[in-house]
């Protein structure tokens, strides 16, 4: 059983990597991720640049390096030259009563505040683990726009996974190869799982890639993968049905249309609908996935909360699968 699931999956992946259209579908989330980086700077790219004197206080330099771009100069003179050169570069220099911030004067206030805060945190020996939450609260780490775009992209990936499935099913349909598979020891379940695994695999790999490209390294990637996996089920089910019911590529790609509206609606609902009214989106697995991912991306969630969200997604997707499973199995005969 496992062996056959594996070989069916492997075949699909191999064929998908060979076709321009499917390769394009695999690459597009990565391109969009790079695009997001252009639109809004990375979460770890604090856009605060600090200049220190080399070897003067290596421990301090290392500490700052976790939160800002740190550049080291040979002496105080060079630090001053460097600051005169560019706008938003700040120097942190040793003075008579501890360290002081050297600025040119036209830097944004928040940047100066940030540097000052960092310095205070260092001097009061706040550890990275303690400090992190405060730094994030400071509002500089995960820009809300970026978080939202990445979250949307993660949902789009599940949709693409569904589309990929529908195209792979369409291939079997056009070539009439299901009949050939059906006269081997392969069970329908193994066939469906093998095909589905392709979508799951692509969804996971693309999601992780997007998370890494956009700089959300420090979130709990395992949690994100769990959410993606659970919500991908619905795209896969729709993808299967769409593939079975279509006769050409354009029709198969139409599964996207089916998923797009509830997905866009759920995102808009979460982002723009106030408090109590959100209850109107509770039916949508995309709503819960978006909400869960939002929590994960802002590193503000707990495992029990996440398990609850994933549980809700699984119940809804499981229900949809139960409703449509017979049609899928019948379609494979």
């Amino acid at each position: 059983m496992l062996k056959r699931i594996w070989f069916i999956f492997l075949r699909d992946i191999r064929i998908n990597l060979r076709e321009l259209m499917t390769v394009y579908m695999l690459v597009i989330p990565l391109i969009l991720a790079v695009g997001i980086n252009f639109l809004s700077p990375g979460i770890n790219d604090t856009s605060v640049n600090l200049v220190l004197v080399k070897d003067e206080n290596p421990e301090q330099a290392a500490y700052f390096d976790d939160f800002a771009h740190v550049q080291l100069m040979d002496n105080q003179q060079e630090v001053e030259y460097r600051i005169a050169e560019r706008d938003d570069v700040l120097g942190v220099l040793a003075g008579d009563n501890g360290y002081y911030i050297l600025a040119q004067g036209n830097e944004p206030e928040s940047v100066v505040e940030y540097a000052r805060l960092l310095n205070v945190l260092y001097e009061s020996e706040v550890k990275l683990e303690d400090a992190r939450s405060e730094i994030i609260e400071f509002g500089r780490t995960a820009p809300p726009l970026k978080k939202m775009l990445v979250n949307i992209l993660l949902l789009l990936i599940t949709m693409l996974a569904g589309m990929l499935i529908s195209m792979n099913i369409l291939e079997e349909k056009v070539d009439q190869t299901v009949a050939a598979i059906n006269v081997t020891p392969t069970t329908r379940k193994a066939f469906i799982l093998g095909k589905g695994f392709t979508g799951m695999f692509v969804a996971i790999i693309s999601s992780i890639a997007v998370i890494l490209i956009t700089g959300f390294y420090s979130i709990n990637i395992g949690q994100a993968v769990l959410v993606i996996l659970s919500v991908t089920i619905i795209s896969l089910v729709i993808g299967f049905l769409q593939g079975l019911n279509s006769d050409d590529f354009m029709e198969a790609a139409g599964s996207v249309k089916l998923l797009f509206l509830p997905m866009a609606g759920s995102i808009a609902g979460y982002e723009f609908v106030k408090g109590n009214w959100q209850i109107f989106f509770y039916w949508s697995p995309f709503y819960w996935a978006y909400r869960a991912n939002d929590m994960i991306l802002s590193k503000s969630g707990s495992w029990p909360q996440l398990i609850l969200y994933v549980g809700i997604i699984l119940v809804i997707c499981g229900g949809i699968y139960a409703l449509l499973a017979r049609r899928i199995v019948r379609g494979l005969q």
Partner: peptide
């Protein structure tokens, strides 16, 4: 059991050899 079909149902996107190799793996 072996079954040869009336329709020539092979994977068009795979080579002849790939078609047979993939199929072979589905048996015990």
């Amino acid at each position: 059991i072996g079954v040869s079909f009336e329709q020539s149902n092979v994977y068009n996107k795979m080579t002849a050899k790939e078609n047979l190799s993939f199929y072979a793996r589905l048996f015990d």
